[in-house]
Design a protein around this nucleic acid. Structure first.
Lengths: 136, 136
DNA sequence: AATTACCCTATTAATTTAATAGAGTAAACA
DNA sequence: TGTTTACTCTATTAAATTAATAGGGTAATT
């Protein structure tokens, strides 16, 4: 299941990407437009800023804005920041690899191979989509 | 993230599928072989039986066994029973469709389209894999 | 009749997710 | 310079889900 955090984050990014100019948009405006708890959204936008997707401006006329061109923002990167690993088990994760505690051997694990295929299928989608595709 | 329930369920199914004969296998044997809490596994196998994947036999020499040929068991069906919806948001689910509470309009939802592609990519994998492929 | 092993309900512990509250700080503008 | 605006940060809590445990019940086989 997609977490609310990810869902809200994607919607907020799409909202910012759909702005004509690059002027900062207030959190409150995004929250209202996309039906998101403002406080929750604050923390999400903050993490997107810390990850390099967004810039922010304080004071009057401040808000958040996209740093890159939406076409340059790969969904793989966005999803990894918002949702975490793309893989469904840590033992097939590229960026968050961990050995499964309950698994004696990955090579003979029946789940491993299937989840590897699932991961690749998902990566294929995320790699071929950018933020610009969300608002098309 | 794949739930433990699904992971254990897949491992158990694979274990049963890898049996030479169709003789029932005791829960305790599966639990031991696959490092699974026996009680937890009981409930998982029970739901797999109720869904028509497994048969069971009581009394001495009893246990669980596969009903169908592993080649005939599609991963789409298994995953839906164990993990639930394949889609990451209810609004793009084929078998568990629900309108998203926070979404005014699916047609203009920026998340909807992406998740539709993700769902199709996952379905493609699950449709092209059977239980027999897990143990290959 | 006794044993084996599945079957079922209930409870609890742990984890994660989602939301809320409130104070603090930096920047802009008059 | 002072005030407003709006982002920043920490902490807390509520809700939901997942995972595990306990214990007794029941059906079938030998």
């Amino acid at each position: 299941m997609l977490s609310k955090k990810t869902k809200y984050g994607l919607k907020a990014l799409a909202y910012l990407a759909s702005q004509k100019d690059k002027q900062p948009v207030q959190i409150s405006e995004v929250a209202k437009a996309e039906n998101i708890s403002q406080k929750f959204l604050e923390s999400i936008l903050l993490s997107l800023r810390k990850s390099g997707f967004l810039g922010s401006k304080k004071g009057k006329g401040g808000g958040y804005y996209l740093i890159k061109d939406p076409k340059e923002v790969l969904m793989t990167d966005v999803m990894r920041i918002l949702e975490g690993p793309i893989a469904m088990v840590p033992c097939v994760s590229l960026n968050f690899y961990e050995k499964c505690a309950d698994c004696p051997d990955e090579a003979t694990c029946s789940v491993n191979k299937l989840m590897l295929m699932v991961r690749d299928a998902n990566l294929e989608v995320y790699r071929n989509n950018t933020l610009a595709d969300l608002i098309a």
